[in-house]
Design a protein around this nucleic acid. Sequence first.
DNA 1: TCCAAACTGTTCAATATTGAACAGTTTTCA
DNA 2: TGAAAACTGTTCAATATTGAACAGTTTGGA
Lengths: 235, 235
Amino acid sequence: MAATAVRRVPAKASRSPKKANSRSPAFNAQTFLDSAGLRRTVRQFWPKETLFAQGDPANSVIYIQEGGVRLTVVNETGKEAVVAILGAGDFFGEGCLAGQSVCMATATAVAPTTVLVIEKKEMSRMLHTEHEFSDRFISHMLTRNIHVEEDLIDQLFNSSEKRLARTLLLLARYGEKGQPPATPLKISQETLAEMIGTTRSRVNFFMNKFRKLGFIEYNGEIHVNNSLLSVVLHD
Amino acid sequence: MAATAVRRVPAKASRSPKKANSRSPAFNAQTFLDSAGLRRTVRQFWPKETLFAQGDPANSVIYIQEGGVRLTVVNETGKEAVVAILGAGDFFGEGCLAGQSVCMATATAVAPTTVLVIEKKEMSRMLHTEHEFSDRFISHMLTRNIHVEEDLIDQLFNSSEKRLARTLLLLARYGEKGQPPATPLKISQETLAEMIGTTRSRVNFFMNKFRKLGFIEYNGEIHVNNSLLSVVLHD
DNA sequence: TCCAAACTGTTCAATATTGAACAGTTTTCA
DNA sequence: TGAAAACTGTTCAATATTGAACAGTTTGGA
């Protein structure tokens, strides 16, 4: 949420950061949809804008062309959890294809964001008729699955200290919204707490501990050193 | 693991319990593969037999025709976690399609089990050429995704007491390996602890609490009453 | 430039969880 | 049938986590 970026118009998608390297050859759904002559809806959002909210009717799949989106869930007591931070090249909202009728999460832009909205019906048809698209989608689902399963295992095995360390390493490696590697991180302790399922109090405690031990540096921006790995790996 | 079932020969798949109702019309991969004239490998396992172990090379997708399979993961310290219990009609091992080269979990039969082993290469081809199969697979992936995400949210939000209550309700509803609803449960406190990410000590504590309050009954077999829901729902 | 909102640093008592121990019970299988 | 293995019941001290409070700092935007 860099102040200077807030009012910048999202540029035409020109690169596919984050997971682009795991997908070859480069794929541009925009171009693809154009060439396939299919109906498409393009929408743009500013940081903090809501793409849709938990409980809304679910009838479209979203493809992120550019930018970043955070998915959050709130429970009955109002506690909030961040379940994913997605970047360009990611799909979400696929739940509706499996019959989910309402959105299970709230999607909020974390950067100037351009998305393609693909209606459920159209999505189904494309999965049948367009092989490249179908491959891309299945690959996305598999990757996502692996990732969520890793998060679950992380929760099952690890203390909040290790979970924080792991989350920081992942964010520093991949970038919060698909920036080049080794980007300084901008993320609040509150959000970190929501991501790893603990309290800000705990996050603050560990952040200071990590800083004292030289595993991270921060004031505003967070720099994660590789030495933080020792926290995750230590017996 | 009912003693009397241990040596029973798995019958030819005739029903598709568990999630079968969410899939219409009924689908039999065996028949399908036969009719499609594709190469298939059928294998059978007894309870406690290992289908494959964490770390093994991963190059096939498995489809459970009959029976049940438990997926577990161990971490460096030897702690074990149960990440899924699957039944007839479920796929697993799809990670290899996304480039995962080793098995991330150990798969162990929990009932007499018959599976189809589909090689990665063949799987890819079928996803392109066979629409019904492709639909089925995508639907499976979506359902699985939703389920794992729910587990993750459960971990992020809930105390171990609520997680235990939720897990018991799910097991009682769906059956550990796809039996008809309202089946008495046979599952150890140790396993429950591994599923919800806590200690047996804690599970025992809550089981006795639930029993005292009349939410469950058990001695050997566990009967879950609907009143247990109040634990999950309570503020 | 200045206020309000958002974020960080810090403290602490109340509560939850772990992990290990030991005895009693049930199940498995030679 | 009998011994070993697996499971349950119970206890408890050590440790981890929560949740709330309050003050100081930074940031966004009128």
